[in-house]
Design a protein around this nucleic acid. Structure first.
Length: 255
DNA sequence: TAACCACCTTTCTT
DNA sequence: AAAGAAAGGTGGT
């Protein structure tokens, strides 16, 4: 399957398979979603600037490991780690003369030595990835089952993996378990809260989260709850538009 | 419960 | 070019 982006639309060679449409979130009813999350001028600006942005429906296992690796790292570094893992432990595949590597299975990562994993640049995340891989392998963990669990139950089960806190759990649910109501809160969303949604929080709270970089668990819960209640069943989409808007337009003029 | 803070490494910024 | 800051947080105390 070959896909080409031509300016603002995708072209699929020989039409798109269902799995491809699903991966790019093309089955999500974007007009409906954007209407529902468009609650104020701030999110509206983000929507107007990036209309068409969709949430990928990724593989849960790959998503889980990727976000365990993501803590305290910037995006290029995360990309590098995932590529290292794929190149060193995944299967080599050839497509029309180009070489790619699949993301390694739980079994393959479970049998990798600590040294081998650390060699991929994981740092202190090495033991989280190793232990999570072993648990998934040993228990035959069924990620698909979590798609049909309640929000609280799915989150609770994800939190049981080492290296998984609130933020990683919400990301895995949003990006791979079809939980579009999940609302991950990272440093960028904290900035969004302070900048655009301060009036929804008491002053003492705003001062508290300003005092340090990453939010505590109780602070996370408050911002997470606000996002889910304020934006509703597609809060995750609101998060994605605000996140991308803030990262892209905060410094530069974005025009 | 709440507040600190160490943590591996890569990439960005000055 | 080199050095310091920041990076899609988590877990332990």
């Amino acid at each position: 399957m070959k896909i080409r982006q031509d300016s603002n639309r995708l072209e699929f060679e020989n039409g798109a398979a269902d799995s491809v449409k699903n991966y790019f979130g093309l089955r999500d009813d974007l007009p409906k979603i954007l209407t529902k999350i468009n609650k104020d001028g701030h999110i509206e600006a983000a929507i107007n600037r990036f209309k068409g942005l969709r949430i990928l429906h990724q593989d849960p296992w790959e998503c889980l490991i990727s976000y365990i690796c993501a803590t305290y790292k910037n995006v290029p570094a995360i990309k590098s780690m995932v590529e290292n893992l794929s190149r060193r432990f995944g299967d080599k595949i050839a497509v029309e003369g180009y070489t790619f590597h699949t993301f390694p299975t739980p079994g393959r990562l479970a049998q990798a030595t600590t040294q081998e994993l650390a060699g991929s640049g994981l740092g202190y995340r090495t033991r989280y990835v190793a232990e999570t891989a072993r648990i998934v392998k040993r228990t035959g963990f069924d990620f698909e089952r979590l798609k049909h669990a309640t929000y609280e139950e799915a989150k609770k089960e994800l939190l049981a993996f080492p290296g998984v806190g609130f933020k990683v759990a919400d990301c895995v649910m949003l990006f791979s378990l079809d939980r579009l109501d999940a609302f991950p809160v990272d440093v960028w969303m904290k900035r969004v809260v302070l900048k655009y949604y301060a009036r929804h929080f008491p002053n003492w709270f705003l001062q508290k989260i300003s005092a340090h970089e990453s939010p505590s668990n109780s602070e996370y819960r408050k911002m997470n709850q606000f996002g889910r209640e304020y934006f509703g069943e597609y809060a995750g989409y609101a998060q994605e538009y605000l996140y991308h808007y803030e990262r892209t337009c905060a410094k530069s003029k974005c025009r």
